[in-house]
Design a binder for these strands. Structure first.
Lengths: 212, 212
DNA sequence: AAATAGTATTGATATAGATCAACCGGACTA
DNA sequence: TAGTCCGGTTGATCTATATCAATACTATTT
């Protein structure tokens, strides 16, 4: 848009860089108003990273050095409990943040595993870079605070849901809130996220489709 | 301690004011290092409030105008689900914060009820006061960020626990993490917090005490 | 094209925990 | 002093969901 008078080669480079931050720009803009210049100043704090399907961003025991914003692809974070069962704590599609904030800030080893479910393109940022970026662009404080608050609310609601709903109700709630995740993620992972066995989810789905 | 050379009357007033903020001071000091002067500057942003047992700090449908720090007493926040069942989202004893941050910042009506379980002494602070206080004492930003992070971690762990543990394991975990809450809160509320019926909790306790 | 690993379905059976119901003891309160 | 409320216990029964096991399908690797 504002690229009049620059060579086509440079234009392409700039265009790519913008495309790379497309989702992040959308995410920030949806929560606060930020000028294009401020946003340009934010870019250098991030590092692009691609992950192939099944690669890990973080493994249990590692210290999380970055949090990641998902520009493209899909990831999950999960823990393994004492009985050896996996529990999916979070999915992240385009426009979501994922990482272990606690490990990032405390320097303690993480209890999570974060794995790409599809080939993914991420924007990483370190704890130090976040500090510096917030120092330099204080408006972004609000963006991150809103993110944190929203995740707290989502987490509390999910907890209440897990305590009060039947398996069928949990699944229907999931369809309503995250239809896109249902589409892209294997069914047994949805089951793990909802705290039920794959068999139970399969039966529930059968019942629902017959019912409709 | 640092009150040499002042009249005994003034001493008492200062002593009371300090006593009123005792827990808050301890909480802040445990997470960041703050000078006594900075802390003194923080005090005016708070408002003291006493609540008798069974009184409410917030009721579903109200907009949360403050968050509260508990200097003394015990509170709970809970929601009522579609089936009319109460679910306790949080307890708060001395040294804990309680409130609906989401409602506070968005201005939307709260979905929570916050009730005193004992006669309690609170320090309230409004959204605007928090902003101003953080502006004036930026060090406190870190304090609040640590609080938020810790609650996220606790909440995620509680969620995984609720998905993976048996009722007995959940109760034992609760005893380990919050022995003080077990002591002071009616048993059926513990059951509600853990997502089981009072009957189940009663049976579990019986079994445990026999086992030991 | 064959082999393998990952994913989903279906059936039979077991069980943790919910539900319903009765009862008990203590603490307000009328 | 009796009466009502509240919290907790105990028993009998029911049910949603887990577990175990077999089979089929699909995608990926060789």
């Amino acid at each position: 848009m504002e690229f009049y008078g620059i060579s086509s080669k440079l234009y392409i480079i700039l265009y790519q860089r913008t495309a790379m931050f497309e989702q992040l720009f959308a995410s920030v803009s949806s929560k606060i108003s930020l000028t294009q210049e401020d946003f340009e100043r934010a870019k250098p704090y991030f590092m692009a990273k691609k992950l192939r399907k099944k690669q890990y961003l973080l493994q249990e025991g590692d210290v999380g050095k970055h949090v990641a914003f998902v520009e493209k692809g899909a990831l999950r974070s999960y823990t393994i409990d004492d009985k050896g069962n996996e529990h999916i704590v979070q999915f992240a599609l385009e426009g979501w943040w994922i990482g272990d904030n606690y490990s990032l800030y405390t320097g303690e080893p993480s209890t999570y595993n974060i794995e790409a479910l599809e080939d993914s393109e991420l924007l990483l940022i370190s704890a130090v870079s976040i500090e510096q970026m917030l120092e330099s662009i204080p408006k972004l404080e609000k963006y991150f605070r809103i993110l944190l608050q929203n995740s707290m609310v989502a987490l509390q609601r999910r907890l209440v849901a897990s305590l009060s709903l039947t398996s069928e109700e949990k699944y229907k709630r999931m369809i309503k809130i995250y239809p896109d995740i249902i589409q892209r993620v294997p069914q047994h992972m949805i089951a793990s996220y909802l705290g039920m066995t794959p068999e139970t989810l399969s039966r529930i789905r059968k019942q629902i489709t017959i019912g409709q």
